[in-house]
Amino acid sequence: MRKIRNRKRKMNVFFAVILLALVLSTALMFTLFIFGINISLKSTYQVDNLSEIFNLPNLKYWKWPYVMEPDHEGVFGNYLDVFERLKLDKPNGYIVGLFNKELVEARIQGDILTCSLYTILYAGIGALCATFMPMFMGYLCSMYRNKVSSIIYALVLFVIATPIVGATPSAVNFMRSIRLYDTFIGEWLRRSTFTNMYFLIFFAYFRGLSSGFSEAAEIDGASQLSIMFRIYIPLALNIFFTVYLMIFVAYWNDFTTPMMFLPSKPTLSYLVYYRTTYDSGGDLNYATKRMAALMIFAIPIIVIFSIFNKRLMTNLTMGGVKE
């Protein structure tokens, strides 16, 4: 009998057609990036000249008579311009309070450095809250088996299966009422939810661990808190870090939530979106500058992906990490 050692099949017409589609899809993606990088390195005049649009950057277009007095010239001129101009300063006001209503006169303010700090606070700490809470509840519900933990498990399944749409106006109104709107603390609290898929992953993982560790530690006099933080949570750090990375990347790229809930604390994605797309009349309203701003924004996440791509592409199963 012929032995088949792995799932691999021989190339045939079916797979050849799929290969062609994959090659085309990949080619489109690379074309977009190469085109984008090329545009970001050109002078605006060269890009405006349609016959030059696919040519490589030409330094003559950075000088007189094509450009009067560029702030910065050369292939990195747009990048230097963007570093200087990528900032926001606009008034913003909203009413807060439940009974005693007050007008808060804030400003949407930030440059690249401030917005990077806001991004660390929003994506870095926000992702930490969003990862810790399901792990914490997953641990409690799997290790302490009682009626309450069974109810919580059923509740999580119910929330995941019940798609509620259109709660954002209520959420904005609620956050304003409790005066946590436009604050990082409010956003971290809002993110600290356990009713999601990650709870199920952590729950399954902890349930698969032996309870012998905890019994032995209890005999040795360890408190419940020590057992959780010194024995079990360190065992789950691999999954914790994977989930954290996935959420961090999603928060890093997300500009819609900060725009809605942190209007005067622009993160980098919010800043880049606002200045390159939303605010179409602004001084970055040139394809060259926009491309440069977008490339600057993409670099950190590409670096993260190059370092952690295996971890990011890992498959989180109900019971651990499967590579």
């Binding site: 099949r9 797979f15 994605s269």
Partner: peptide, 28 residues
Amino acid sequence: YKKMLGARFFRVILFLPNVISNLIMVYL
């Protein structure tokens, strides 16, 4: 899944839009 020609490479490429901001992909 069938590990055909370039499968590992395409797996990474197909995953890339998950990591790179939609903002960048849309504008390009």
